[in-house]
């Protein structure tokens, strides 16, 4: 066993609860993500996975419990606040502007400017392209035409751009909501290899998937949710598909 279990978790949620009116979507839920660790979240539809990640990423406030970032309690009023603290969510439906280049997507909403002719502020496309090339290089994606709109790229490449954006802005915790769901099999493998890279860089990843094969290929631990409660937590090396399915459906 490696020593990562002793280090302070990057992210920890303790006794987190969230209810909508009478509906208890999340009930006394606890988990932790350590640096360089991939934690899979599994559970049937409506088990509370989405509620959990929305609470962590600042989309809404938990009703009870706390979130700790490197041991410090935090609260996020908006997703922007969570992002500024290094928590980035990557959505399955590819949150990219397809008509813009990789660089423009990485910098969307935070575009660098430069002064043309010494006075006129203009978009610094060159800086964006350079950053795009470097970032994608770190993820082992090499693209020659940096001015091409991302619609020219395949689904896996575009998923890589979304991950690249998180990496460029130095997200320490990446929440990936079904990152492989919209992709073909070879593309899924690419995304899995990207997650390995993130792990090697010491980032924490929360990986949500319906695909147990993907979960077993990439995760260190798996946390199973069932009707808003933590139904079990297993080291990937110490469990198997059958046990996880049993935990999910409640055997």
């Amino acid at each position: 066993m490696n020593s990562s279990e002793q280090t302070t978790p990057l992210l920890e949620v303790r006794h987190l609860s969230k209810h909508f009116g009478a509906v208890q979507a999340l009930n006394d839920f606890s988990m932790a993500v350590r640096p360089g660790e991939v934690v899979a979240l599994a559970g049937d539809n409506g088990a509370g996975k989405t509620t959990l990640i929305k609470a962590i990423s600042g989309v809404f406030q938990p009703t009870g419990g706390e979130i700790l970032l490197r041991g410090q309690p935090v609260t996020f009023a908006t997703p922007q606040e969570a992002r500024e603290k290094g928590i980035e969510t990557i959505y399955q439906d590819l949150a990219l502007a397809d008509n813009l280049s990789i660089g423009a997507n990485i910098f969307l909403g935070r575009e660098p400017m430069r002064k043309a002719f010494g006075f006129l502020p203009v978009l610094d496309r060159k800086a964006m392209a350079v950053a795009a090339k470097q970032t994608m290089g770190r993820l082992d994606f090499h693209v020659s035409r940096l001015d091409a709109p991302v619609s020219n790229f395949s689904g896996g490449q575009r998923q890589a751009v979304a991950i690249g954006r998180a990496v460029y802005w130095d997200a320490q915790i990446l929440i990936m909501d079904e990152p492989t769901a919209a992709l073909g099999v070879p593309e899924q493998r690419k995304v899995i290899s990207l997650i390995h890279q993130l792990k090697a860089q010491g980032r924490g990843v929360i990986f949500i998937s319906h695909n147990l094969q993907d979960i077993f290929a990439v995760s260190d631990r798996i946390v199973v949710l069932r009707r808003g409660i933590q139904a079990g937590e297993r080291r990937i090396s110490e469990t198997n598909h059958d046990e996880v399915v049993k935990l999910m459906v409640g055997g």
């Binding site: 922007q80 990219l96 978009l123």
Partner: peptide, 26 residues
């Protein structure tokens, strides 16, 4: 100039392509 060289113009293209992505980008 406004359309091609400013943030306003850039955001305009992004919103037209994918308003959800633009919103998530802040």
């Amino acid at each position: 100039y406004i359309l091609s060289q400013t943030r306003f113009g850039q955001h305009n293209y992004a919103i037209g392509a994918n308003v959800q992505a633009a919103r998530r980008a802040g």
